[in-house]
């Protein structure tokens, strides 16, 4: 479903991604872990083309995201491709001038020309799924962090994406609010959504992941099923990282 081939990316002199390749199969969940600054966010943002990579190929559902098109043609292409992907950000990025309902229905109505009643009905369904049916007429400022993030997930789901990308979606949240967001993600997992998750929550990673990648300094150090990575890591670098994380 998602296939990255030899991705390279630098910011000026700073080589952030150094030849990353990975695959995520339909309905599977890939979790990426790694120390701060290792390039996890950059990788995820590249898949959504929020960053332009220097080299390599990104394929999602048989379509090349970084297709060799130019100018307006590429614009059109990328807007279509992005509709197939849902992305959830660390800092929510809800639209503050829209209600919860409008946040969710805006894109489907504008891009898929779905009539209002239908979009509203769909949004209500999604809000139920993220346990926020009672908040549909609130503005984002009236919500807690955990609620905001769940709305952001519903907003991404409203475009009926084929894959979901999560970039540390719980790391801006108070500890007691993390659970409610993780619960929503687990629910998605049980519905066989294809997901790529970057997280610092090792317990959660171990629970939902089909496959785990450990990244450091722009390269994949080690990958495998969660049992293996978490209980019996092969590399010294992975062991040290996990030791640090679990110590705290």
């Amino acid at each position: 479903m998602i296939s990255l081939k030899d991705i390279w990316k630098s910011f000026g002199d700073n080589q952030v991604l150094k030849g990353i390749s990975l695959e995520v199969e339909r309905g599977k969940i890939l979790v990426i872990i790694g120390p701060s600054g290792s390039g996890k966010s950059t990788l995820l943002r590249s898949i959504n083309h929020l960053e332009t990579i220097d080299r390599g190929e990104i394929w999602v559902d048989g379509v090349q995201v970084n297709a060799p098109l130019k100018g307006r043609k590429f614009e059109k292409h990328i807007n279509r491709v992005r509709q197939e992907m849902g992305m959830v950000f660390q800092h929510f990025n809800l639209f503050p001038h829209m209600t919860v309902m409008e946040n969710i229905t805006m894109a489907p109505m504008l891009l898929k020309k779905i009539p209002r009643e239908k979009a509203d009905a769909q949004a209500r369904g999604l809000l139920e799924k993220v346990d926020l049916a009672d908040k549909m007429n609130c503005y984002p400022v009236q919500l807690s962090g955990g609620q905001k993030q769940r709305v952001a997930i519903a907003r991404a789901l409203a475009m009926e994406p084929k894959v979901m990308l999560f970039d540390e979606v719980t790391s801006a949240l108070d500890p007691e609010l993390i659970g409610e967001v993780n619960k929503v993600m687990k629910r998605l997992a049980s519905e066989h959504m294809t997901m790529l998750i970057v997280t610092h929550e090792m317990r959660f990673a171990a629970e939902v992941a089909d496959h785990v990648i450990f990244m450091a300094d722009g390269v994949i150090i080690e990958e495998g099923p969660p049992e293996e990575i978490f209980s019996n890591p092969a590399h010294e670098r992975t062991r040290r990282f996990l030791f640090e994380v679990f110590k705290s």
């Binding site: 992005r82 509709q83 992305m87």
Partner: peptide
């Protein structure tokens, strides 16, 4: 972040 969220939904 606002622009990015919007673009990631597929808005031009």
């Amino acid at each position: 972040g606002q622009t990015e969220a919007s673009r990631s939904l597929g808005l031009n």
